[in-house]
Structures are given as C-alpha cells and as structure tokens.
Simulated assay, not measured.
Amino acid sequence: MPALPESIFDVCYLVFAIVSGIRLLKYANGRKDIRLFGWMALILGCGDAFHLVPRILNYWIEGDFTAALGIGKLVTSVTMTVFYLLMEYARRERYHIKGEKPILIILWVCAIIRITLCCFPQNGWTSAEPSLLWGILRNIPFVIMGVMTVILWLRSAKQDKPLKWMWLAVTLSFLFYLPVVLWAQAIPLIGMLMLPKTCMYIWMIVMFRKTAHS
C-alpha cells in the first residue's frame, strides 16, 4: 500500500480505537462489561501505537527505525495478549458466568507463556531479520488463546445481537495474522494482510460500542 493511504488509515484506526475506549469508559454507567470493552479498545489503540507510529514516521522521516519498529512489535504482542485475557473477563461479566475456572487457568497460563517468550532476546526484536522460529514459538500459546476465545464467544453470544459475530471477527483476525508470522519475511507482500486484520479489530470495537446502547 502507498505510504499516504496507509498512514491515513493507521492514524484513523488509532484515533478511533483510543477515542472509542475513552467513550466506553466514560459512559459505562457502572456496567462492568462495558468498562472492560472500554479498556480493551484503549489497550488495543495504545498498544498498536507503539508499532504503528514508528511505521508511519519511517515513511516520512529519514533514519533507521528498525529498533523502534521491533520494540513496538514487542509491546503490541504483550498488549494483544492482555486484550484477549480481558475479552474472557468481559464475556463472564456480560453473560453472568460463574465458575469455569479451568478456562481461566488455561488462558492465564498461555498468556504468561506468551509474554515470557516475547521477552527472550532470541526473538531478535530489534534486528532487521528477527527469528522466524521464535516468532512461531511465541505465537503458539497466542493461537490457543484465540481458538478458545472463538469457541467461548460462539457459545455465549448466539443471542446477543451486538456481539453475535465476535467469534467471526476473532477468527478472521487470526487467519489474516498467521500467514504474516509464517511467510512475511520471505514474501514481504504478505505483510499487507495486516490491513484486513486491523479491519477486524475495528469491527470488534464497533461491536463493543453497540453494547453501550443495548
């Protein structure tokens, strides 16, 4: 994608995510599920900013942004993990789910493993050629979290009009993301799949916003 359209898209996405998060937190009116959706949107926008802002600057300012982009990807990897943890807590609040502790335990274990793996220097975050092996390893627990999220929301939100398609948005986001992890280094054009992946998160935020009126 040319620099200008991508830059405009990224800025609009970040502003939309952050503003939506603030608005959801402001108008939650004591509803814990809405408050959690607000935090999720805010964390999503702020976390992605660490990666997208250096990416935008890289288009328009001369200099080496490799390290900044790598650190941004690290931050985004952590915040996305937190995002999916909060999604489970939001599901529990919205549908008044008690128990199911094994689900929480598995999600927490996957999240801790994922974040721990992200912190290893072998990832080569600041390198121009980060480790493909470690990229795969750190995404295994993340994919498990994603699969669990899809199943749980498909089961819980069938009759919830604002969130009925949350499972599909999550599914598509992972389907767009995984080819990037596996093949983007060898075939840079595959990195363009991050655009529809981001569109899926915009769709999620739109669904979050609809819950405030339901």
Rank of each mutant, 00 (worst) to 15 (best):
W125P: 01
I151S: 13
L132T: 10
F142K: 03
G135P: 00
S131F: 03
V143N: 01
P141N: 02
I140A: 02
P130N: 03
S131R: 08
S131N: 03
T126Y: 05
L132I: 10
G135Q: 00
T149R: 07
R138S: 11
V150S: 04
T149F: 14
M145W: 08
P141M: 04
W134D: 09
I140F: 06
P130S: 04
A128S: 15
I140S: 01
M145A: 13
L137P: 03
I144F: 12
V147H: 09
T149H: 14
I140D: 00
P141G: 06
F142G: 11
W134G: 04
Q122E: 15
L132Q: 09
N139S: 13
Q122Y: 14
W125R: 00
S131D: 01
S131T: 03
L133T: 10
L132F: 11
Q122F: 14
M148N: 13
V143H: 04
V147A: 15
V143F: 13
L132R: 12
T149I: 08
L132M: 08
E129F: 14
G135S: 01
Q122R: 12
S127G: 11
S131K: 07
E129D: 15
W125Y: 09
T126H: 09
W125G: 02
S127Y: 08
P141F: 07
V143K: 01
A128P: 08
V143L: 13
G146Y: 00
I151F: 14
I140M: 03
G146C: 04
P141Y: 04
I136M: 03
F142L: 09
W134Y: 13
N123R: 01
P141K: 02
I151L: 15
A128C: 10
A128Q: 12
A128E: 15
I151R: 13
T126C: 12
P141I: 09
L137H: 06
E129K: 12
I144N: 05
M145L: 13
A128V: 10
G135H: 01
W134N: 06
R138M: 07
G146S: 02
A128T: 14
M148D: 09
V150N: 02
L133N: 12
G135K: 00
L132G: 03
F142T: 07
N123G: 05
N139L: 08
R138T: 08
W134K: 01
G135T: 03
I140Q: 00
P130F: 04
W134S: 05
F142Q: 11
S131I: 02
N123I: 05
L133R: 07
V147K: 09
T149D: 06
M145Y: 10
S131Y: 05
M148V: 13
I151V: 15
T149L: 13
G135I: 00
I151T: 10
I136W: 05
T126A: 14
F142C: 08
M145Q: 11
E129V: 14
E129G: 10
G135N: 01
T126K: 10
W134H: 07
R138K: 10
V143A: 11
G124Y: 06
I140W: 04
V147D: 01
N139E: 15
I144L: 11
M148G: 15
T149P: 06
F142V: 06
R138P: 06
W125S: 02
R138N: 09
T149N: 10
T149W: 11
P130K: 03
G124H: 05
V147N: 08
W125F: 13
M148F: 12
V147P: 07
S127A: 15
S127C: 09
T126D: 12
